[in-house]
Amino acid sequence: MAKGPVFLERRTYRLRRMMDAVKLLPLLGFALWMVPLIWPLPDPADQTSADPMPMSMALLYLFGVWVFLVFMGWLLWRRTAGKMGASGTASSLSSRPDEQG
């Protein structure tokens, strides 16, 4: 395990949570972009099925997610860039104990 203090000062703590967000963002993006999997498909055999998702809605949703992800990426970059290298926490952040095998 990476040795260090148990509690961190507020700024370092925030930085670490920002990095957590950076790591989690692609998972969020994947989840959001896989939402179309649960949209109903038009079934030519069954006329009574639910109305298929209109193209414009699908378009707006997918591009909306895209813009959101880009914006979040930009925001996180503004918050974390530079500080990582300067505070020297990059190595402690990136050292993952499960890789020591």
Binding site: M34, P36, M53
Partner: peptide, 24 residues
């Protein structure tokens, strides 16, 4: 444009889930 899209031949979501995930 959005109205025209909805009215067109590709106006509805009809991508198979397996292809959507596999191609991504």
């Amino acid at each position: 444009t959005l109205a025209r899209i909805d009215a067109s031949a590709i106006g509805a979501w009809e991508v198979q889930g397996s292809r959507w995930a596999a191609l991504t």
